[in-house]
Design a protein around this nucleic acid. Structure first.
Lengths: 230, 230
DNA sequence: TTTGTCTTACATCTTTGGATTGATATTTTG
DNA sequence: CAAAATATCAATCCAAAGATGTAAGACAAA
């Protein structure tokens, strides 16, 4: 019963010892979180996380020795169920994007008010993902930018569109590494028929061999098309 | 001077005529936006967009005839500078993700309060991206999920790590669709040497032919490794 | 109905790819 | 330094892949 409302446990990782102390005091004084550990080393932090199983980790991602992003990735791989909030001095869109991509549950700037940090912790502790509004826009800018080329690909004029349904099936099997025999077996047709299809595919995609065909398919959104239809 | 504070122009696209009328009235009465067009057809909407150059488009993305997402994609390709807000009845994470991915500047549920719709329009009109808080969480859930496999790939045990530097060079050229002759020419070594390397690559990656080797490379973060070193 | 496309199939021939063995020089590493 | 790994090259052999031409049946559109 007493454990029901137990304080959430926090681990702090920040190579700047001063900042580390400051945050620790801040949390101790102004919040109801338990600081179960504080270290300036990412590797040590990972070990402490394994040992103390905190609910939340505040992780500085601008560290020289070991990259904070890498540390987050390792923590995610360990699957401890810990929620990592990235701390950074920079509102760099790329950094934010990468942190969120590898599983950070929040991203807070060091310059932000202490109240905001604690609010972020509350949100994340309750299972949400927290990004300050300003950072959310930056994130989306980057997000949309990074998908811009990809979208052009799938909407652009595409030699794949000249393929017949059967040829697409054959190409799909090619992109899975099948040889003639394998394709023939899977489509229940003769090997010579497969050869015919494959040759037609080469003509239409203007390539010389199967590897180039597969590469063309992958680089031009072939899998996405398939996915959309399924 | 008078044009400085001119009303922002809005185009409405929604296959549900009733809803279309409702939104039009709402905007006319309760906001300072000019509705320059309203249509139930996605294709017509695209034409109207070209003609009237609205600042904002409210696009229903659940339409039977033509998919709203496709329409957004076409609009983005036209590069009219118009900001599209996706309207949907569903807070489906995948839908939200796809809409934002192709360049939507906002996503609003039809069930949301009218004030929120207008707020979203204001935000988007001023160049921001607007997602209701609840949808932002859904978006991030999906976002992180969709990158989960990819992250495992780059951190997982990887047969690519057994390759020598030279073999990596050869594999790189393989992933560009080169044959033996092409690789030999580019590396200034004999074709038989290339064959040796390629055979060693097959052994190490446990594959049977070049297509499978290329697929293994692409599926296991080979390009990313290269990029990191460059 | 005719035309065209798609799918199936085969034969033939040439080229490329892949496996194996063996050899030598260079580089890395213990 | 000595041993091990790497990079280079060659010959050979068989299998697979690719090019080309031909053709019949299905089916849809004009």
């Amino acid at each position: 019963m007493r454990e029901f409302k137990r304080k959430s446990r926090v681990l702090l990782i920040d190579d700047n010892a001063d900042h580390l102390r400051g945050v620790k005091e801040l949390i101790t004084l102004e919040s109801s979180y338990d600081v179960v550990g504080a270290t300036t080393s990412a590797n040590m932090g990972i070990n402490l996380a394994k040992k103390y199983r905190p609910d939340i980790i505040l992780m500085d991602i601008n560290m020289p020795e070991k990259d904070g992003l890498q540390a987050i990735q390792e923590l995610e791989k360990l699957d401890l169920g810990v929620k990592v909030i990235a701390l950074s001095g920079y509102d760099d869109a790329d950094l934010i994007f990468r942190a969120m991509k590898i599983g950070a549950k929040g991203y807070v700037l060091k310059t932000m008010a202490s109240a905001q940090l604690i609010y972020a912790m509350d949100e994340v502790a309750s299972g949400k993902i927290y990004l300050p509004t300003a950072l959310t826009s930056r994130f989306f800018e980057f997000f949309q930018q990074s998908f811009k080329e990809e979208n052009n690909v799938s909407s652009g004029e595409n030699l794949l569109s000249y393929l017949t349904a059967r040829e697409e099936e054959v190409l799909d099997l090619l992109t899975q590494g099948n040889n003639y025999k394998g394709i023939a077996g899977k489509l229940f047709i003769s090997e010579t028929t497969v050869k015919t299809h494959v040759n037609n595919i080469f003509q239409k995609l203007q390539v010389n061999d199967r590897t180039q065909a597969v590469l063309y398919a992958l680089n031009n959104g072939f899998n996405k098309r398939q996915a959309l239809r399924a």
